[in-house]
Write a protein that binds this DNA or RNA. Structure first.
Lengths: 243, 243
DNA sequence: CGTCATTTTGAGGTATTTCAACGAAGGTGG
DNA sequence: CCACCTTCGTTGAAATACCTCAAAATGACG
């Protein structure tokens, strides 16, 4: 993370603005990428933001004026419950969309985890654009559908009883989500342990003990606080699947 | 529910085919209803089905060919986990859409709970229609977004530790979802206790004890297995909110 | 190199899960 | 219309796993 950030802007521009997945069925794979023209249209209404870690982008229940797309970095969307507990609804990485609202207000609070680059899309302009470009809108629909699936998966993760199993599922979710290192045995974890706890609906202590258990069982090696190395993918997968 | 079903077919046709909620922000409220023309277009590719209870509509991982919209009745979407446990992802009522797929395959199994009437929409035809009617697609987008919010809420419900609180949240979710009796103090529960258990990620026994506790505390009275009467809306709401 | 936040470790408390058995409800056939 | 049977729901008691509180240890940062 502290390594040279390279010519970030150029790589950010050429990367797919939105990474989506076929909505319903046999949509051709390439349908999930934006055309040059579409990217141009979207960029025309977008503001590029470069932000430091730990910055709150918007608060829950605040009037929603923009939708965001992650260009680079990690963001978390969460809600603080009356009890004082915090529930992380999702971690967002490159290509993810966030900022969905209900009745004109954001549902979650969004905060940057790392240094990030974002695209900020004013809702009114985006709505206009979507209503005039059905193909583009279809890609957004696919994207939102994907988020929906993620949310359903998370509900399954959280419903597990054993902390180690939940953590195993979490690690594999992050691993498959961060397409970069899909063939690597390392998983980068930009978020803190307590963020993970809030995502998994466990106490911070339980997460700590779960990481210890995964190490003790030689499934994963945690190297520092922000990197995990998979030692036994097979057994880790088995643990994750043993829901 | 056992009361006269009235001229069911006509009321089904005139009811909004899809009940959606503003996608992002200040979309006018009426934007969530289909126009006559749109309903016509959708109905043109739809097949109306009338099905008995306990019928499986499709299985998890089966090739996805259609999207469904509930006309009347209740449906559940669930997944059976390797452990033998079952997780209900959502209960679907009038106006709800289900049958979302990933890579051409359904993610959940769908089964009717009551006698239902459904609209079956072939995916290829629907895709074609959506790509040619951006306004219609926008309404679908709103609908999917709404499902996403529901899924996030469910994740919060499931993350609670106390069974009674989870049940309270569930009751209120169902109550607000079934727009019919929003001002009534009764909540109809077409699903079984074990369906509720699978939705809340509790054991059947825990649900049973939770209902007993809600009755003991005089918050709710369960009249038969499929009807709940709210006795103290204020305290029930407080319990649900005490996450 | 010192300070502060984060994470780890330990011990006891509490809620749900499991296992087992009973009771109630609904549907079928005689 | 009643008896039977199967499914569903309720209740009790012990076991498990996480939560909470407390304190030490590790790591990040200026």
């Amino acid at each position: 993370m502290a390594k040279r950030r390279a010519p970030a802007s150029s790589s950010g521009e050429t990367a797919p603005l939105i990474r989506a997945i076929p909505f319903l069925g046999s949509t051709p794979a390439d349908a999930s990428r934006l055309t040059d023209r579409q990217r141009q249209d979207v960029l025309a209404i977008a503001t590029r933001l470069r932000l430091p870690p730990r910055l709150t982008l918007y608060h829950e229940a605040a009037p929603a004026s923009s939708l965001f797309v992650v260009g680079e970095g990690a963001v978390k969307a969460f809600r603080d419950l009356p009890s004082g507990k915090r529930r992380v609804a999702s971690f967002l990485f490159r290509g993810d969309v966030f900022g969905l609202a209900e009745n004109g207000r954001y549902l979650n609070t969004a905060q940057t985890i790392t240094h990030v680059s974002l695209y900020r899309l004013p809702i009114d302009k985006l709505t206009h654009l979507l209503k005039h470009d059905a193909e583009l809108q279809f890609k957004v629909l696919c994207k939102v559908t994907h988020e929906l699936r993620q949310a359903q998966r998370r509900a399954i993760v959280v419903s597990r009883r054993d902390a180690a199993g939940r953590l195993a599922m979490f690690l594999l979710m992050i691993k498959t989500h961060l397409i970069d290192d899909i063939h690597s045995d390392t998983i980068s974890l930009p978020m803190s342990r307590s963020d993970i706890a809030d995502y998994l609906a466990l106490s911070l202590e339980a997460v700590s003990r779960a990481t210890a258990e995964l190490e003790r069982r030689k499934l994963v090696k945690f190297e520092g606080r922000h990197l995990a190395r998979v030692l036994d993918a097979k057994r880790l997968g088995a643990l994750a699947a043993a829901v």
